[in-house]
Amino acid sequence: LETFPLDVLVNTAAEDLPRGVDPSRKENYLSDEDFKAVFGMTRSAFANLPLWKQQNLKKEKGLF
């Protein structure tokens, strides 16, 4: 999966995202380093959170 810089994904409308980016899964296009910096946890820890908590975190970080 291709990764993009944080500033390309945060608070970006679906139509302005790079081609192929799923707007409902912007976090998947962050590098592992950016993911950890944004969410303060690994991808696996994030995946283990309840869906509502994942969505709330994504909203807080501008990735929803």
Results as ranks from 00 to 15, higher is better:
residue 29 Y to A: 05
residue 49 L to N: 00
residue 28 N to M: 15
residue 63 L to G: 04
residue 13 A to P: 13
residue 54 Q to G: 00
residue 51 L to I: 12
residue 42 T to M: 08
residue 28 N to T: 11
residue 12 T to Y: 07
residue 51 L to W: 10
residue 59 K to H: 09
residue 47 A to D: 09
residue 45 A to M: 13
residue 29 Y to C: 06
residue 48 N to V: 12
residue 42 T to C: 08
residue 20 G to C: 10
residue 27 E to F: 02
residue 24 S to A: 14
residue 28 N to P: 03
residue 3 T to D: 04
residue 41 M to T: 03
residue 23 P to W: 01
residue 39 F to G: 00
residue 58 K to M: 06
residue 32 D to G: 05
residue 49 L to G: 00
residue 42 T to S: 14
residue 16 D to W: 07
residue 33 E to A: 11
residue 31 S to G: 06
residue 1 L to T: 13
residue 48 N to L: 13
residue 53 K to F: 13
residue 61 K to Q: 08
residue 25 R to D: 03
residue 59 K to L: 15
residue 59 K to C: 13
residue 27 E to M: 04
residue 7 D to S: 14
residue 28 N to G: 06
residue 3 T to H: 11
residue 43 R to L: 05
residue 19 R to D: 15
residue 58 K to G: 01
residue 27 E to C: 04
residue 10 V to H: 06
residue 27 E to R: 01
residue 20 G to I: 09
residue 13 A to Q: 11
residue 3 T to G: 05
residue 39 F to P: 00
residue 18 P to T: 04
residue 46 F to C: 00
residue 34 D to R: 01
residue 13 A to F: 07
residue 25 R to Y: 12
residue 1 L to I: 14
residue 8 V to M: 15
residue 50 P to E: 07
residue 62 G to P: 01
residue 1 L to Y: 15
residue 61 K to V: 14
residue 31 S to I: 03
residue 38 V to G: 01
residue 17 L to V: 06
residue 14 A to G: 09
residue 33 E to H: 09
residue 26 K to M: 15
residue 20 G to L: 07
residue 46 F to Y: 07
residue 37 A to M: 13
residue 13 A to L: 12
residue 42 T to Y: 05
residue 19 R to E: 15
residue 26 K to G: 02
residue 44 S to M: 13
residue 48 N to Q: 11
residue 35 F to I: 01
residue 7 D to A: 12
residue 32 D to E: 11
residue 43 R to N: 02
residue 49 L to Y: 04
residue 41 M to G: 00
residue 1 L to V: 12
residue 15 E to Q: 14
residue 62 G to Q: 04
residue 23 P to L: 08
residue 27 E to L: 04
residue 11 N to H: 12
residue 48 N to I: 12
residue 64 F to Q: 15
residue 63 L to A: 03
residue 26 K to N: 02
residue 9 L to A: 03
residue 58 K to N: 01
residue 64 F to C: 15
residue 61 K to W: 05
residue 42 T to K: 06
residue 6 L to R: 05
residue 14 A to Q: 10
residue 59 K to I: 11
residue 5 P to K: 02
residue 4 F to E: 03
residue 27 E to P: 02
residue 50 P to V: 02
residue 7 D to N: 10
residue 49 L to H: 01
residue 64 F to H: 15
